[in-house]
Amino acid sequence: MSPIVKLLAQRIALSLLLLLLISIVIFAGTIVLPGDVAQSILGQSATPEALANLRAELGVNDPPVERYIAWLFGAMQGDLGTALTSGQDIAQALSSRFWNTLFLAFWAAVVAVPLAIFLGLLAVRFKDRWPDKTISAVTLASISIPEFLIGYVLMYFIAVQLRWFPSVAMVNDNMSLFEKLNAIALPIAVLTLVVLAHMMRMTRAAILNVMQSAYIETAELKGLNAFQVIYRHAFPNAIAPIVNVVMLNLAYLVVGVVVIEVVFVYPGMGQYLVDHVSKRDVPVVQACGLIFAAVYIGLNMIADIVAILSNPRLRHPK
């Protein structure tokens, strides 16, 4: 087996192991903590009989290991259990919301990634001059405000004062793609602002790192202009770190949507999760937590795989 296949197989196996361990952590996190779940669902005034019934229904009396295994095997077959509060099948309730969340995160990425890389290149080209300084000042400001507040600031000025876009992002299946995009324009703008700063800074750092290599000096001495040096020599060598940053930020996007969905009342998984946390609906929270963690780990894994594949020393072993 060539070393690169082995390396990739190891990386994928590691991710699967990580996911398994995380499922244990998520499951354990909801049972070892202080507080009686049945009590918190029913409130302080619950009768002992009602409490006992709910505990039996939740399976709290069974040994934890048995419950965990039953839960895990169910989850692997797509059975995430039923919600305590509504009695709905969780997998069914989640499927359309999951696609909504991916839809939002996808379009945010389509806007944010090229913009961040372009601005990063711009910052390198004009290093220590006003474009670079302006970009870093805006970055500092945007990481200093929580994302939900950026959401309300944009909502107040763009949706309410200027009336350019709707202030809530309601989507349904009957809408055309354009109508949907119009509805989610503001959430996309917020998410872009949230990840842009970090992504751009890392792009700038990665390219600056490459710019110090000897072959860049050769290219400069050869008489190429600054953009050509960056585009033809620095950028290909900076791809691995940049892809890494992009993937990490996409992973962050998937989590960032949780809060943004609540702000814009968007029917996605994040809003569903937050709703059910306050209702203390443990099976729903476990299911959502597991899915979010799986997406997060999957994107991190892709980042590592791209880094391995883009490294010529690993692609062409001696």
Partner: peptide, 11 residues
């Protein structure tokens, strides 16, 4: 490897 906000919400 678990996003902080998700972990906090689960807990």
């Amino acid at each position: 490897s678990i996003p902080t906000l998700i972990f906090a919400l689960v807990v």
